[in-house]
Design a protein around this nucleic acid. Structure first.
Lengths: 227, 227
DNA sequence: ATATAACTAGACTAACCAGTCTGGTTAGGC
DNA sequence: GCCTAACCAGACTGGTTAGTCTAGTTATAT
């Protein structure tokens, strides 16, 4: 019961396995709880006791795993950035698909990306970074090198290949990638009121379509129309 | 001396006037100091004693003016938002200028806006909002209704008039305004590493030019070229 | 001259919390 | 069956800080 999210049957099923994997499971539970509590209350206001309770773990266990509160923040943020990276790459990777028309593909990718960025954990990560960037400047490096930069570079790669294939015209693919993200996220930030409001999927689709409209007007090939 | 930013000669010159205006001057000094300290340390970590010291004022004076720490935050944020609004409107208002060519005018407005958004206090305001939006959801309303919404609406108005005059083609001026801001700020966010790095004016100019390029490709009039 | 109102420095309280420690429990490896 | 290592609940220390209070100062208005 005091273990929080564990159900009794889950505890029974895992009765043996949990002992072997117990340590790593606890570590993950602590990271999840830490991210949740840090995101909810902010670093300074978040109590390590609260994190421990939310993870279903004793406070001393938290310290034995992570040493101190600062390090816990860094590890929780890093884990969350890795998660975000995976989600985003899955969205951008669909841009490899050929055969369908480019506009529809871009709109699909845009929609997936918007869904990633509208996720509560994604907003929490960005807020946490903004909030603690003065006290922990290295969080910026953690997040950018682990996630943000890779995603932008991956999209730039895709745009470059589409340009080489004659489907697009992006002389500076990195800039084009930045502008694609900007056209998606700028209007979304305003509409969601910085993530405090949830948008229905239809509205996300409209945002993606508007972004792709503008993007294609700027970066569609100039001479030859695509088939 | 203990009054901080006061110079001796200033104190002499204002010897009479300061008594009459002393109360309002102190109020302003407290608001400035509060914003600075909140931005530097975050709400929870900011000590009211530190704010008082930075304002050159006793702690009790802070409480007599603002009641409690939460209210002090709100008032400091509101004052800062008003300041930001004035700066931004001054930039957007130049879009009324006729006679020069539209591209150059837009690039000039873009540059001014980037300078506004790159200002330390502007970044501090956005960070503070992100950081405390969970604990103080009303900060969002304060900032949006006082500043952000008005700026976007004002730009949308300008774009609409330019469209009516045949210099642009923006069927949805509000969306176009959002996208203009997005094209400016998205790439800038990345390049400044969320405001932790300062960009030279030449780079801001390049960012503005890139944004305006894309913007005009999407929203230049389709049939008749402007003179 | 005196009443009033804003201000000052600094002491004080009550609460909160990071990090440590203690003493005891559990469970797997051998 | 015992050893070890991870874990538990909860107490404890030391430092920080919001908000209050006191006693004394300054300056204006009348």
């Amino acid at each position: 019961m005091s273990l929080g999210w564990w159900t009794a049957s889950y505890a029974e099923d895992m009765h043996q396995a949990v002992a072997a994997r117990g340590r790593i499971d606890k570590r993950q539970a602590i990271l999840d709880a830490a991210f949740t509590v840090f995101a909810r209350a902010g670093y300074a206001q978040a109590g390590v006791d609260v994190i421990a309770a939310e993870a279903g773990v004793a406070k001393a266990t938290v310290y034995s795993h992570f040493g101190d509160k600062e390090n816990l923040l860094r590890e929780a943020v890093a884990a969350s950035a890795d998660q975000a990276l995976a989600d985003n790459l899955a969205a951008v990777d669909r841009l490899t698909d050929r055969g369908t028309d480019l506009r529809a593909t871009l709109e699909g990718v845009g929609l997936r990306l918007l869904q990633c960025y509208c996720d509560d954990r994604s907003w929490a990560l960005r807020r946490l970074l903004s909030a603690e960037i003065n006290q922990f400047p290295d969080l910026l490096d953690i997040i950018h090198t682990r996630a943000a930069d890779r995603i932008t570079e991956t999209l730039a790669d895709r745009l470059a290949r589409l340009t080489v294939a004659g489907h697009l015209h992006t002389p500076d693919p990195l800039l084009a990638a930045e502008q694609f993200f900007a056209l998606l996220c700028g209007p979304m930030d305003r509409r969601t009121r910085l993530g405090t409001r949830h948008l229905p999927d239809t509205e996300l689709r409209a945002l993606s379509r508007a972004a792709v409209d503008t993007f294609l007007q700027a970066f569609a090939p100039k001479r030859t129309e695509t088939t």
